[in-house]
Design a protein around this nucleic acid. Sequence first.
DNA 1: TCATGCTTTCAATACTTATTGAAAGTACCC
DNA 2: GGGTACTTTCAATAAGTATTGAAAGCATGA
Lengths: 181, 181
Amino acid sequence: MSATNDFIEAKDDFISQWGALGTSWGISRTMAQVHALLMISPESISTDQCMEELQISRGNAHTNLKELVGWGLVRIVVKKGERKEFFEAEKDVWKVFTIVLRERKRREIDPAVELLKGCAERSKNVKSLEGQAFHKQINELQDFAIFASKVGETMSQLKYGPAIKFADKFLGLLPKDKSMK
Amino acid sequence: MSATNDFIEAKDDFISQWGALGTSWGISRTMAQVHALLMISPESISTDQCMEELQISRGNAHTNLKELVGWGLVRIVVKKGERKEFFEAEKDVWKVFTIVLRERKRREIDPAVELLKGCAERSKNVKSLEGQAFHKQINELQDFAIFASKVGETMSQLKYGPAIKFADKFLGLLPKDKSMK
DNA sequence: TCATGCTTTCAATACTTATTGAAAGTACCC
DNA sequence: GGGTACTTTCAATAAGTATTGAAAGCATGA
């Protein structure tokens, strides 16, 4: 088996399994596959190339490419002399992480904070045992949610260097060879 | 409107909306609702009470209660003189967080690390431009995934106190009134 | 042993979400 | 204007996931 065949196999495997993983990350399989394809393409690609590579319909390719643009994970590129749009992914892994973190915070934490705020407010004057327990639990959840929101906010604004230094110093962790970056 | 009515409304609202949020957290709506119900119940509850409160079938209640037990978010309680099982949730918010974090790491990060390891291995000897780009990108993703895995691992083992001190000191964040805990 | 009360399973079904493909929209050029 | 090369939308459909309810399983005690 040649290195080239290994590579083709690895590439197909990566796209297909990254897609499957996408599901557990709360994004659709196809969107994750399109993202995978773009992350490993040295050149930007067109909607037609995307359809071809992933064997999906035009509508599907279009929707997911634009959704990725919406997330800020993919940019539209216009090539001179070409009428169609090309797409290229953000390749910097830390940037990808901060973008995804910000989006997940917005979709997963912020609404929880709002909900808890409302529930805390409406239960603050309640007398019953059940009511007291409710209010206490909601308050604790709220404190945590606000805390998580702030951590997310701060992290998503951090540059790679400071983030790594931070993690290194206080968790004693480091990805190999990255301490000098 | 009495405080009691506000409370009943808040409680129903909490259960129903926590369920909706569950979806974006990658767990099923019903499982999140069951969890919500248990978190705010001062007493442990039975399968029948769960069915009653949430208006769901026995099979559904059973499956989701047991799934929560599987996660470690809910415990089975046996009451003397009672033949049926009762369920109570872990109420400590930090413990809930570390349990969920561990589970999400296991389901969302670990498989990614495995995938990337395999892809890096199979593409390390490739010569083409496309192959080189692939290998480089996979390696960067792998470094990050391993890093994230370690952060998750460490965080999920942290006790609430040290975690808060840590966050306070280096992010300048604190949930109000918690610095002395 | 059988009746009772509870737990567990699972095939059928309902609900939710993703995908297709064709039609409509838009922008550019001759 | 009209033709061409794309992009965008969306109703129909397919695929995936959750829920039901009834039947089977299991433990207890009369």
